[in-house]
Protein backbone atom coordinates (compact mmCIF):
# COMPACT_ATOMS: atom_id res chain seq x y z
CA UNK A 1 0.00 0.00 0.00
CA UNK A 2 1.20 3.48 -0.80
CA UNK A 3 -1.18 5.31 1.51
CA UNK A 4 -3.17 3.96 4.41
CA UNK A 5 -5.29 6.31 6.46
CA UNK A 6 -6.51 4.66 9.65
CA UNK A 7 -9.27 6.09 11.83
CA UNK A 8 -8.25 9.64 11.08
CA UNK A 9 -10.05 12.33 13.09
CA UNK A 10 -9.49 16.03 12.52
CA UNK A 11 -11.19 18.64 14.69
CA UNK A 12 -11.61 22.37 14.62
CA UNK A 13 -12.03 23.88 18.06
CA UNK A 14 -14.17 26.90 17.26
CA UNK A 15 -16.19 29.28 19.40
CA UNK A 16 -19.35 27.48 18.30
CA UNK A 17 -17.99 24.18 19.52
CA UNK A 18 -15.87 21.30 18.31
CA UNK A 19 -16.27 20.58 14.61
CA UNK A 20 -15.40 17.00 13.69
CA UNK A 21 -14.61 17.78 10.06
CA UNK A 22 -13.01 14.38 9.49
CA UNK A 23 -14.35 11.72 11.80
CA UNK A 24 -12.80 8.29 12.07
CA UNK A 25 -11.99 8.02 8.37
CA UNK A 26 -10.04 5.10 6.92
CA UNK A 27 -9.01 4.58 3.32
CA UNK A 28 -6.10 3.20 1.36
CA UNK A 29 -4.45 3.76 -1.99
CA UNK A 30 -2.05 1.76 -4.09
CA UNK A 31 0.42 2.95 -6.68
CA UNK A 32 -1.41 3.85 -9.88
CA UNK A 33 -4.76 4.14 -8.13
CA UNK A 34 -7.14 6.93 -9.02
CA UNK A 35 -9.60 7.61 -6.23
CA UNK A 36 -12.18 10.38 -6.07
CA UNK A 37 -13.51 11.85 -2.86
CA UNK A 38 -17.01 13.25 -3.46
CA UNK A 39 -19.55 14.94 -1.27
CA UNK A 40 -21.43 18.16 -0.74
CA UNK A 41 -19.73 21.35 0.32
CA UNK A 42 -18.50 21.37 3.91
CA UNK A 43 -18.41 17.59 4.38
CA UNK A 44 -14.67 17.53 5.11
CA UNK A 45 -13.05 16.68 1.78
CA UNK A 46 -10.44 19.40 1.90
CA UNK A 47 -9.80 18.82 5.57
CA UNK A 48 -9.05 15.17 4.77
CA UNK A 49 -6.57 16.25 2.08
CA UNK A 50 -4.86 18.83 4.30
CA UNK A 51 -4.69 16.31 7.13
CA UNK A 52 -2.77 13.90 4.92
CA UNK A 53 -0.05 16.50 4.29
CA UNK A 54 -0.49 17.79 7.85
CA UNK A 55 -1.35 21.34 6.91
CA UNK A 56 -4.18 21.90 9.37
CA UNK A 57 -3.91 25.39 10.80
CA UNK A 58 -5.08 26.32 14.25
CA UNK A 59 -7.82 26.10 15.53
CA UNK A 60 -7.71 22.70 13.81
CA UNK A 61 -5.75 19.63 14.81
CA UNK A 62 -5.40 15.99 13.96
CA UNK A 63 -6.93 14.45 17.05
CA UNK A 64 -6.54 10.78 16.29
CA UNK A 65 -5.62 8.09 13.82
CA UNK A 66 -2.60 7.15 11.78
CA UNK A 67 -1.47 7.95 8.27
CA UNK A 68 0.96 5.46 6.76
CA UNK A 69 2.62 6.66 3.61
CA UNK A 70 5.32 4.74 1.79
CA UNK A 71 6.74 3.20 4.95
CA UNK A 72 6.41 6.28 7.15
CA UNK A 73 3.80 7.24 9.72
CA UNK A 74 3.03 10.86 8.97
CA UNK A 75 1.16 12.01 12.08
CA UNK A 76 4.21 11.38 14.26
CA UNK A 77 6.86 12.63 11.81
CA UNK A 78 8.99 15.63 12.81
CA UNK A 79 8.03 18.92 11.16
CA UNK A 80 11.27 18.98 9.13
CA UNK A 81 10.78 15.43 7.85
CA UNK A 82 7.16 16.23 7.06
CA UNK A 83 8.26 19.27 5.07
CA UNK A 84 10.39 16.98 2.93
CA UNK A 85 7.39 14.78 2.24
CA UNK A 86 5.32 17.76 1.12
CA UNK A 87 5.94 18.54 -2.50
CA UNK A 88 8.55 15.85 -2.95
CA UNK A 89 6.48 12.76 -2.20
CA UNK A 90 2.96 14.13 -2.04
CA UNK A 91 2.05 16.83 -4.53
CA UNK A 92 -1.00 18.99 -4.12
CA UNK A 93 -3.11 20.99 -6.56
CA UNK A 94 -5.54 23.54 -5.15
CA UNK A 95 -9.01 24.52 -6.18
CA UNK A 96 -8.50 28.06 -7.36
CA UNK A 97 -5.67 28.63 -9.84
CA UNK A 98 -6.23 32.38 -9.58
CA UNK A 99 -5.10 32.48 -5.95
CA UNK A 100 -2.71 29.57 -5.58
CA UNK A 101 0.28 31.27 -7.22
CA UNK A 102 2.32 34.06 -5.67
CA UNK A 103 1.47 37.19 -7.69
CA UNK A 104 4.92 38.70 -7.15
CA UNK A 105 7.15 35.92 -8.42
CA UNK A 106 7.84 34.65 -11.92
CA UNK A 107 6.43 31.22 -12.73
CA UNK A 108 9.99 29.96 -13.19
CA UNK A 109 11.08 31.29 -9.80
CA UNK A 110 8.16 29.59 -8.08
CA UNK A 111 8.89 26.24 -9.74
CA UNK A 112 12.64 26.40 -9.17
CA UNK A 113 12.32 27.45 -5.53
CA UNK A 114 10.33 24.28 -4.90
CA UNK A 115 12.78 22.13 -6.87
CA UNK A 116 15.83 23.48 -5.11
CA UNK A 117 14.20 23.00 -1.75
CA UNK A 118 14.09 19.26 -2.33
CA UNK A 119 16.73 18.17 -4.80
CA UNK A 120 20.35 19.01 -5.29
CA UNK A 121 20.40 20.99 -8.53
CA UNK A 122 21.97 24.23 -9.64
CA UNK A 123 19.79 27.21 -10.43
CA UNK A 124 20.45 26.71 -14.13
CA UNK A 125 19.45 23.06 -14.05
CA UNK A 126 16.33 23.90 -12.07
CA UNK A 127 15.27 26.46 -14.68
CA UNK A 128 15.82 23.86 -17.38
CA UNK A 129 13.60 21.41 -15.50
CA UNK A 130 10.99 24.15 -15.06
CA UNK A 131 10.91 24.69 -18.83
CA UNK A 132 10.53 20.98 -19.45
CA UNK A 133 7.73 20.72 -16.90
CA UNK A 134 5.78 23.51 -18.57
CA UNK A 135 6.19 21.83 -21.92
CA UNK A 136 4.94 18.60 -20.42
CA UNK A 137 1.69 20.19 -19.27
CA UNK A 138 1.21 21.80 -22.67
CA UNK A 139 2.51 25.31 -22.08
CA UNK A 140 5.22 27.10 -24.07
CA UNK A 141 8.46 26.72 -22.08
CA UNK A 142 9.21 30.45 -22.22
CA UNK A 143 6.25 30.96 -19.90
CA UNK A 144 8.76 30.51 -17.08
CA UNK A 145 9.46 34.21 -17.56
CA UNK A 146 5.81 35.16 -17.06
CA UNK A 147 4.10 36.39 -13.94
CA UNK A 148 0.84 34.74 -12.84
CA UNK A 149 -1.33 37.71 -13.86
CA UNK A 150 -0.16 37.26 -17.44
CA UNK A 151 -1.71 33.79 -17.67
CA UNK A 152 -5.30 32.61 -18.02
CA UNK A 153 -6.96 30.47 -15.37
CA UNK A 154 -6.40 27.27 -17.34
CA UNK A 155 -2.76 28.13 -17.93
CA UNK A 156 -2.24 28.86 -14.27
CA UNK A 157 -3.76 25.56 -13.26
CA UNK A 158 -1.35 23.84 -15.66
CA UNK A 159 1.49 25.69 -13.97
CA UNK A 160 0.25 24.51 -10.59
CA UNK A 161 0.06 20.94 -11.87
CA UNK A 162 3.51 21.26 -13.43
CA UNK A 163 4.79 22.40 -10.04
CA UNK A 164 3.04 19.57 -8.23
CA UNK A 165 4.49 16.90 -10.52
CA UNK A 166 7.93 18.41 -11.12
CA UNK A 167 9.39 16.45 -8.22
CA UNK A 168 7.77 13.27 -9.36
CA UNK A 169 5.65 12.71 -6.23
CA UNK A 170 4.20 9.28 -5.55
CA UNK A 171 0.82 10.71 -4.67
CA UNK A 172 -0.93 13.67 -6.24
CA UNK A 173 -3.84 15.20 -4.35
CA UNK A 174 -5.99 17.51 -6.46
CA UNK A 175 -8.56 19.49 -4.47
CA UNK A 176 -11.27 20.49 -6.94
CA UNK A 177 -8.64 21.38 -9.54
CA UNK A 178 -11.12 22.36 -12.24
CA UNK A 179 -13.99 24.04 -10.42
CA UNK A 180 -12.91 27.50 -11.55
CA UNK A 181 -12.33 26.46 -15.16
CA UNK A 182 -14.55 25.94 -18.22
CA UNK A 183 -15.50 22.47 -19.42
CA UNK A 184 -12.97 22.20 -22.24
CA UNK A 185 -10.06 23.24 -20.05
CA UNK A 186 -11.43 20.91 -17.38
CA UNK A 187 -11.22 17.98 -19.82
CA UNK A 188 -7.61 18.80 -20.66
CA UNK A 189 -6.61 19.10 -17.02
CA UNK A 190 -8.29 15.77 -16.27
CA UNK A 191 -6.44 14.16 -19.19
CA UNK A 192 -3.27 15.51 -17.69
CA UNK A 193 -4.06 13.92 -14.32
CA UNK A 194 -4.76 10.67 -16.09
CA UNK A 195 -1.36 10.77 -17.76
CA UNK A 196 0.25 11.35 -14.39
CA UNK A 197 -1.50 8.27 -13.14
CA UNK A 198 -0.28 6.21 -16.10
CA UNK A 199 3.25 7.10 -15.04
CA UNK A 200 2.58 5.17 -11.83
CA UNK A 201 1.47 7.96 -9.52
CA UNK A 202 -1.54 7.55 -7.29
CA UNK A 203 -4.15 10.27 -7.74
CA UNK A 204 -6.64 11.50 -5.17
CA UNK A 205 -9.20 13.76 -6.81
CA UNK A 206 -11.46 15.79 -4.59
CA UNK A 207 -14.61 16.97 -6.27
CA UNK A 208 -18.28 17.56 -5.73
CA UNK A 209 -18.94 16.60 -9.33
CA UNK A 210 -20.15 13.00 -9.16
CA UNK A 211 -20.26 12.61 -12.93
CA UNK A 212 -16.62 13.65 -13.23
CA UNK A 213 -15.59 11.24 -10.49
CA UNK A 214 -17.51 8.37 -12.12
CA UNK A 215 -15.98 9.06 -15.52
CA UNK A 216 -12.39 9.46 -14.42
CA UNK A 217 -11.60 7.40 -11.36
CA UNK A 218 -11.23 3.73 -10.44
CA UNK A 219 -12.68 4.17 -7.00
CA UNK A 220 -15.00 6.61 -5.32
CA UNK A 221 -15.29 7.50 -1.64
CA UNK A 222 -18.45 9.38 -0.71
CA UNK A 223 -18.14 11.68 2.28
CA UNK A 224 -20.96 13.04 4.36
CA UNK A 225 -20.57 15.27 7.41
CA UNK A 226 -17.04 14.10 8.17
CA UNK A 227 -17.70 10.40 7.53
CA UNK A 228 -16.94 8.22 4.57
CA UNK A 229 -20.37 6.65 4.12
CA UNK A 230 -19.66 4.59 1.04
CA UNK A 231 -16.54 3.60 -0.88
CA UNK A 232 -15.87 1.20 -3.71
CA UNK A 233 -15.32 0.58 -7.41
CA UNK A 234 -16.39 3.66 -9.38
CA UNK A 235 -18.53 1.87 -12.00
CA UNK A 236 -20.35 -0.37 -9.58
CA UNK A 237 -20.87 2.35 -7.03
CA UNK A 238 -22.40 4.59 -9.69
CA UNK A 239 -24.60 1.88 -11.17
CA UNK A 240 -25.74 0.34 -7.89
CA UNK A 241 -25.36 2.80 -5.07
CA UNK A 242 -26.02 1.21 -1.70
CA UNK A 243 -26.15 4.09 0.78
CA UNK A 244 -29.33 6.21 0.53
CA UNK A 245 -27.14 9.32 0.44
CA UNK A 246 -25.10 8.07 -2.51
CA UNK A 247 -28.31 7.20 -4.32
CA UNK A 248 -29.71 10.64 -3.61
CA UNK A 249 -26.50 12.28 -4.77
CA UNK A 250 -26.49 10.39 -8.05
CA UNK A 251 -30.14 11.12 -8.70
CA UNK A 252 -29.54 14.80 -8.14
CA UNK A 253 -26.83 15.00 -10.83
CA UNK A 254 -28.09 16.28 -14.19
CA UNK A 255 -27.13 13.69 -16.76
CA UNK A 256 -26.57 15.13 -20.22
CA UNK A 257 -26.83 11.87 -22.15
CA UNK A 258 -29.69 10.03 -20.55
CA UNK A 259 -33.18 11.44 -20.40
CA UNK A 260 -33.92 11.05 -16.76
CA UNK A 261 -35.72 12.90 -14.07
CA UNK A 262 -33.51 14.93 -11.72
CA UNK A 263 -34.42 14.65 -8.08
CA UNK A 264 -32.68 17.27 -6.00
CA UNK A 265 -31.63 16.02 -2.61
CA UNK A 266 -33.90 17.64 -0.02
CA UNK A 267 -32.43 19.41 3.01
CA UNK A 268 -28.90 20.45 3.89
CA UNK A 269 -25.90 18.74 5.46
CA UNK A 270 -25.91 19.17 9.26
CA UNK A 271 -24.03 21.79 11.22
CA UNK A 272 -20.90 19.88 12.18
CA UNK A 273 -20.69 21.68 15.51
CA UNK A 274 -24.00 20.05 16.47
CA UNK A 275 -24.36 16.91 14.35
CA UNK A 276 -27.58 14.90 14.72
CA UNK A 277 -27.50 11.98 17.09
CA UNK A 278 -26.80 8.57 15.55
CA UNK A 279 -26.49 8.51 11.78
CA UNK A 280 -25.63 11.97 10.53
CA UNK A 281 -27.70 11.49 7.38
CA UNK A 282 -30.78 10.44 9.36
CA UNK A 283 -32.67 13.79 9.18
CA UNK A 284 -32.54 13.71 5.37
CA UNK A 285 -32.85 9.95 4.89
CA UNK A 286 -36.05 8.59 3.30
CA UNK A 287 -35.35 5.15 4.82
CA UNK A 288 -34.50 6.14 8.38
CA UNK A 289 -35.76 3.90 11.20
CA UNK A 290 -35.48 3.72 15.01
CA UNK A 291 -32.12 2.02 14.64
CA UNK A 292 -30.61 5.06 13.01
CA UNK A 293 -30.61 6.88 16.35
CA UNK A 294 -27.37 4.99 16.96
CA UNK A 295 -24.21 5.45 14.88
CA UNK A 296 -24.20 2.86 12.08
CA UNK A 297 -21.22 0.50 11.78
CA UNK A 298 -19.04 0.53 8.68
CA UNK A 299 -19.33 -2.81 6.92
CA UNK A 300 -17.73 -4.49 3.96
CA UNK A 301 -20.18 -5.88 1.39
CA UNK A 302 -18.44 -7.61 -1.55
CA UNK A 303 -15.50 -5.26 -1.41
CA UNK A 304 -17.71 -2.22 -0.95
CA UNK A 305 -17.49 -0.20 2.26
CA UNK A 306 -20.80 1.17 3.44
CA UNK A 307 -21.75 2.86 6.71
CA UNK A 308 -25.50 2.31 7.07
CA UNK A 309 -27.82 0.21 9.24
CA UNK A 310 -29.47 -1.20 6.09
CA UNK A 311 -26.43 -3.31 5.41
CA UNK A 312 -25.71 -4.52 8.90
CA UNK A 313 -24.14 -7.96 8.82
CA UNK A 314 -26.31 -10.25 10.86
Amino acid sequence: MLLEVENLTTLFRTKRGIIRAVDNVSLSLEKGDFISIVGESGCGKSTLAYSIIRLIDSPGEIAGGKIYFDGKELTSLSEEKMRKVRGKEIGMVFQDPMTSLDPLEKIGDQITETLMEHIDVTKKEAWQIAREMLEKVGLPPDRVESYPHQLSGGQRQRVVIAMAVSLNPKLLIADEPTTALDVIVQEKIMDLLNEMRKEGRAIMLITHDFALAAERSDRIAVMYAGWIIEMGDADRLTKEPMHPYTRGLIESVPDVWVDREIKPLPGFPPDLAKPPEGCRFRPRCPLATEKCMKEPPGVDVDGRYVKCWLFEVK
Binding site: R83, R86, G87, S100, L104, E113
Partner: peptide
Protein backbone atom coordinates in the same frame (compact mmCIF):
# COMPACT_ATOMS: atom_id res chain seq x y z
CA UNK B 1 -4.51 33.34 4.98
CA UNK B 2 -4.16 33.32 1.20
CA UNK B 3 -4.06 30.16 -0.85
CA UNK B 4 -0.63 30.73 -2.31
CA UNK B 5 0.96 30.78 1.16
CA UNK B 6 -0.63 27.43 1.93
CA UNK B 7 0.47 26.29 -1.53
CA UNK B 8 4.10 27.19 -0.73
CA UNK B 9 3.87 25.12 2.43
CA UNK B 10 2.20 22.27 0.56
CA UNK B 11 5.21 22.21 -1.78
CA UNK B 12 7.53 21.81 1.18
CA UNK B 13 9.05 25.26 0.97
CA UNK B 14 10.88 26.07 4.21
CA UNK B 15 8.86 28.16 6.67
CA UNK B 16 11.51 30.90 6.70
CA UNK B 17 11.06 31.38 2.94
CA UNK B 18 7.28 31.19 3.17
CA UNK B 19 7.36 34.03 5.70
CA UNK B 20 9.66 35.97 3.40
CA UNK B 21 7.14 35.69 0.55
CA UNK B 22 4.31 36.65 2.88
CA UNK B 23 6.20 39.72 4.10
CA UNK B 24 7.03 40.74 0.55
CA UNK B 25 3.35 40.62 -0.39
CA UNK B 26 2.31 42.42 2.77
CA UNK B 27 4.91 45.09 2.09
CA UNK B 28 3.37 46.45 -1.12
Amino acid sequence: SQDFIRAYRARGVRERKVIFHAMKNAFI
